[in-house]
Design a protein around this nucleic acid. Structure first.
Lengths: 239, 239
DNA sequence: TCTACGTGTGGAACATTGTTCGTGTCAAGG
DNA sequence: CCTTGACACGAACAATGTTCCACACGTAGA
């Protein structure tokens, strides 16, 4: 009802300084955490391809140049994102009797994190092995495999293989989903359509593909993921 | 020494038509094959990241717009490239007694093709399964696995897994090589440097990583590739 | 209190890349 | 000859990562 006294006095003295100060206080400073949060939100809702410096800056109500006071470049932002995802993984206390379930569980966690942020595993594929959050995960997986009696060398290489496969699996899954959304009739990922095309191939040229079109296109949920992980872990067991 | 008679006559009649016609004959028409050849050459020498419509057009002595009369877009070009690489693969006649070596051999061939064109496996990860060249390779691999007595469903899913892993492995290898060339001291891929960093980690936080830094960074040539492929194929054998 | 310095903010500009638009040329068919 | 379709290609546009530069603010020192 009544005009703010400070405002009134400012008007009296033709002094607008009080207003900008209040405005500055209302806008939180840009931080790496806020950038990372905003970026993850964009990837979660629109996919990794929608992640641009401009989209992040827009979400923070600023311009893209402002981000460079906090991140080196876009690749640095990628690393922050993957680091954040890795930080969210729960690494179990290794149990020799359940190491197989444990390693599969960690991989499933990674997969689920990546799939929550469609396309982000592309960033993971570009990261070196020395980021501390990645080392933490690697350490946890190594502990599980060693507890399970896997030889150190095999364990080390298995981690590499598992992480590569998980990232590739998620990348493809994200692309499949993206393509489905686009309803591109030329390149198909939709299972029924692939099945149709496989079955329609000339049997003389593609005898096995036509005969086993159903198996080639089979799989619900993460059947393929589980199958491959089992292959690898079984391979470790029999090593 | 003597001026070309056609030229002389053209000058006489103030008719320049003969000159452009000759020039047109010297420049071969742009075709999909020429585009694909040029693109592969660029990727082979400068890596996938250097592949732009402009770089291809430049190599062909034209402008980027000219390419669009022959390729739909850049993604289409990607498919042409992967199709070309797949067409170069030699698929063996399946031999039940040697199916394991055969499947490993096909995967090694794919790997080598991808590594000859650094970074190109990124395009492979984005492709759907219905491209005819990819179906041909898939058919060949399926024939090998079935000849080896692998159940159709397992064979079908194994192909998916193998192709994903090979692409991811090559993508990472390309990025490692690229990073090494940049001598980026912050993110490291160089093995000795990774070993140094792993060994220098706090042992209390990363006991297994520090103790097994040597194994984590071990591997010459394609040791990791061979290890993982063996894991998968062994897993198939014991299924 | 005033001044200087360092840090953060953010618009403008730049280089690069994929793609479309529009124009000109050529060849084939009527 | 005229028309049509295909190809070639420069110009222009939109989008994206990044740098440059000016300004504002906070802190430390005189």
């Amino acid at each position: 009802m009544s005009v703010d006294p400070t405002q009134r006095r400012a008007v009296r003295h033709a002094q607008p300084a009080a207003v900008p100060a209040r405005q500055a206080r209302r806008k939180p400073p840009i931080t790496v955490d806020r950038i990372t949060d905003a970026a993850l939100e964009i990837v979660a809702t629109e996919g990794y391809d929608a992640l641009t410096m401009r989209s992040v800056a827009g979400a923070l109500g600023t311009g893209p140049a402002s981000l460079y006071a906090h991140v080196v470049n876009k690749a640095d932002l990628d690393e922050l994102l993957i680091g954040r995802l890795c930080a969210g993984l729960v690494l179990p206390e290794p149990d020799p009797a359940a190491w197989r379930e444990q390693i599969l569980g960690v991989c499933a966690q990674i997969r689920d994190q990546y799939l929550r942020y469609p396309g982000i595993s592309r960033a993971a594929l570009a990261m070196g092995p020395t980021d501390l959050e990645i080392v933490r995960v690697s350490e946890g997986m190594l502990a599980i495999l060693l507890a399970g009696g896997v030889a150190p060398q095999a364990a080390a290489w298995a981690i590499d293989a598992l992480l590569l496969y998980v990232a590739a699996y998620c990348l493809e899954a994200s692309i499949v989903r993206q393509r489905s959304a686009q309803e591109d009739a030329v390149v198909v990922h939709d299972r029924e359509e692939v099945l149709r095309r496989f079955a329609a191939l000339p049997a003389a040229t593609f005898p096995h593909t036509t005969r086993h079109a159903a198996e080639l296109t089979a799989g619900e949920g993460h059947d393929r993921f589980d199958f491959t992980l089992a292959l690898m872990v079984d391979g470790l067991v029999h090593r």
